[in-house]
Nucleic acid binder design. Structure first.
Lengths: 331, 331
DNA sequence: ATGCCTCCTGTGAACGTTAACAACCCGACC
DNA sequence: GGTCGGGTTGTTAACGTTCACAGGAGGCAT
C-alpha cells in the first residue's frame, strides 16, 4: 500500500528547523541560509515528502490545474491539438484536465463556472457561443483556441487569410480555375478569406459551396452534391482533412480521377493525410505552436502579467504539397 | 470577475442552522428534519454555494479525480477509447484527468506515485511494464485497460480469443488460406490466439508475420515486406485498423488488388475504417463497453467493495464485415 | 419524577499548507 | 555602548470542510 504520507511537520523535525522554513525552501523564497536549504532538501528526499496539493490549494486558492475544453476527442485533429496542449501544460509544471464538451453549451457553462474552484484557468478549443463569450472579461483566465477574433478575451487562431492565399495561389499554379468549397466555414471569416484569396489569384465568380459539415461521411456527401450541382468543378477546397478524405473516398467510389479530373485540398495536416491514395495536399496549422501560444497567454493571465485588454495571436500556417493537387496531365 | 465565493458558514447563517447541519444536508446523511433540509437547500441555492473541493479533499483524503493514463492521444483508437472513459467517469460525478504518457515509464511511475494525493484512482490504457505491475496490489485503485491478464491488479480487455476465432472463420468462408500477420501482438497472447484460431479453422502452417508495429507508415512497410517474403499471401490480418489502413494504401500504390488478390482485416473499428476504399473489415472491440467495465471496477475499489483478489473482465467483440474481405471473384 | 433510548443538532478539533507578523542574531553606525 | 537595520527564523492564525463527540428535546417505560 501507499506508505503513510509524510507531512511538512515531519520534514521540519528531521531537518531541525521550523515548518515555515521548510515552506520557504519549497517555495524558493529568499532569506534562507544555503546550509539550511541543503538540510531541508535532504530531509525531504529522505522522507519522500510531496506537498499536499489540497492543503496548498485551500490556503492559496490556486489549484495548479488547467482545464482543456474540447468538443470531441475522436476527431483526429482535435485529439492531436489536445495532446499538444496537454503536453505544453505539463511542461510548465501544471496539471491538465481534459473535458470533452460534445458541443453541449451547458457543459461549457459548468466548466466556466468551475473556474477558480476546481482549476485556475481554461483553454477552450473550437467555437464558443457568443453569449457565453459575452460574459467573459479580458482579465479572465480563459483562452479561446481556434475561435474568431474577439475583444472579450484572449484568443489564438491559425492564419486563415494566409492559408486561403497559399491554397488559392497553389491552385492557380496547378492549373485549376473552377474550385468548389466544402466546410470552409470553420471560422466565420473563413468563407470571406477564401473568396478574396481566390479573386486575388485571378479565379473569378462565386465558387459553389457546402457549409457546416464535419467528418468523412459528410465530406463524401458534400462532394457528391457539389459535383452534381457544378459538373465543371476541377478542385475541392475542404475546411478539414477529414472532409477532404471523405470527399476523396467518394470520388474514388464514383470513378472520378484525383487529381487528374479534380484536385483536393484539405486543412489540418493529419497523420492520415499522407497515407491516402493519392496523398492529400493540405494546410498545416502548426498544432504545437498553437498550443504553445494558448498556454503562454493563459500562464500570463494567471501571473497577472496579461494586461487589461484581450490579446490575440495569429499563428502562421504552411502549405503541404502532395499528390492530390498535381496539375492535370503533369503526372 | 467571479463573485466572492460563499462558504458553508454563510449558508448556515442564512438558514439559521449550524455549519455541521449544512454539511449533513450536503452529504445526504440521515438525522435531519425535512423542514431543515429544505431551508438549507434554499439557502444554498440563493447563495449559489458550491462546496470547496480543496477543503473537502484535505479533510477526507479524497479528490474525486480519476487519472487516465494513455500512451498517446493522437492514435485514433486511443482517443476514441479515452473519450469513452472520460465520459464514463463524468457520468458518475467524478472528474477525469487525462495524462498522455508517451510510452515513458517515468511518467507512469510518477502517475502511480501521485495516487492518493492528486487523484483517487487510475485507469491505465495499454501495456504497462511488468516490474511496475509487480509493485501493485489487488486492492489498489488501479485498473489496467487492454493489458494482459494479471493477478496483481484489476484489468479489462477485449476478448482476443473470440476475435481471432471470428476472423479466422470469416477468412475461410471468404476462401482465403494463406494469411500473413501484421502487429497482432497487441497483447502477448495475441499471436498464440490467432495461430490457434487459424489452425482450428483448418488453415495449416505458420503464418508469416511482422511484430511490434503501430501507425500507418509501419503498416505500409510491413505489408510490403510480407508480400516480398511470402508472395502467395491472400490475406493480411492486422492488429489495428491503423496498420490495416497503412497496408491498404501500400497495396493500392503497388497495384495489388484488394480484396481480389489480398484481403485485409483490421482491429478497432475506427471511424476511418468505413471510409477507406475498399472499406475495411475489422473487429469492433466495443470501446464504450470496455470503458464502462474499467470505470466499474475502479469505482468498486474506491468504495472498498472490490474484494481481495484482482478481477478481470473479458469484453465481447464483434466482427464488422466490409469490402476488404470479399471473396475473390465474388465482387 | 426519573431513567433511558432515539432522534436531531451543535461544538471543537482536526486535515497540511501558507501569510502576517513577531522575534532573533549579528554587524555597523552614531 | 546603545540603537538601528538587514537578513534569517519561528509563532500563530487562518483557508473551508468533515469527523468525533457532546448535548438537548421529546417519548416511553419504570
Amino acid at each position: 500500500m501507499v506508505p503513510m504520507a509524510a507531512t511538512m511537520r515531519d520534514v521540519a523535525a528531521l531537518a531541525g528547523v521550523s515548518i515555515k522554513t521548510v515552506s520557504r525552501v519549497v517555495n524558493l523564497e529568499p532569506h534562507t541560509r544555503p546550509e539550511v536549504v541543503r538540510r531541508v532538501r535532504s530531509a525531504i528526499a529522505e522522507l519522500e515528502w510531496v506537498p499536499n496539493g489540497a492543503a496548498r490549494t485551500l490556503r492559496t486558492g490556486r489549484t495548479g490545474v488547467i482545464a482543456v475544453g474540447v468538443p470531441q476527442l475522436r476527431r483526429p485533429y482535435l485529439s492531436m491539438l489536445t495532446e499538444a496542449v496537454v503536453s505544453e501544460v505539463y511542461r510548465r509544471g501544471l496539471q491538465a484536465a481534459v473535458e470533452p464538451t460534445h458541443h453541449r453549451d451547458e457543459r461549457l457553462t459548468t466548466l466556466l463556472d468551475a473556474r477558480g474552484r476546481v482549476f485556475d484557468g481554461i483553454i477552450l478549443i473550437g467555437a464558443v457561443p457568443p453569449d457565453l463569450v459575452a460574459t467573459l472579461r479580458p482579465t479572465d483566465a480563459v483562452v479561446l483556441l481556434h475561435h474568431q477574433s474577439t475583444d472579450r478575451v484572449d484568443s489564438v487562431d491559425a492564419d486563415a487569410v494566409e492559408a486561403a492565399s497559399l491554397v488559392a495561389r497553389h491552385l492557380v499554379v496547378m492549373g485549376r480555375s473552377r474550385p468548389a468549397l466544402i466546410g470552409v466555414d470553420r471560422t466565420t471569416d473563413g468563407p470571406r478569406a477564401v473568396a478574396e484569396a481566390l479573386a486575388a489569384a485571378g479565379i473569378v465568380g462565386d465558387a459553389p459551396r457546402v457549409d457546416h459539415v464535419a467528418g468523412r461521411a459528410e465530406g463524401a456527401r458534400a462532394a457528391r452534391e457539389l459535383l452534381d450541382r457544378a459538373p465543371g468543378t476541377d478542385a475541392l477546397l475542404c475546411g478539414s482533412d477529414e472532409l477532404a478524405l471523405g470527399a476523396l473516398a467518394e470520388l474514388a467510389r464514383s470513378g472520378v480521377a484525383v487529381p487528374d479530373q479534380v484536385a483536393i485540398v484539405g486543412f489540418d495536416n493529419l497523420d492520415d493525410a499522407s497515407f491516402s491514395t493519392p496523398s492529400l495536399t493540405t494546410v498545416d496549422p502548426g498544432a504545437a505552436r498553437l498550443a504553445r501560444s494558448a498556454v503562454d497567454l493563459l500562464v500570463d493571465r494567471l501571473a497577472g502579467t496579461g494586461g487589461d485588454a484581450a490579446r490575440r495571436i495569429i499563428s502562421p500556417v504552411e502549405l503541404v504539397r502532395r499528390e492530390s493537387t498535381l496539375g492535370p496531365g503533369l503526372r
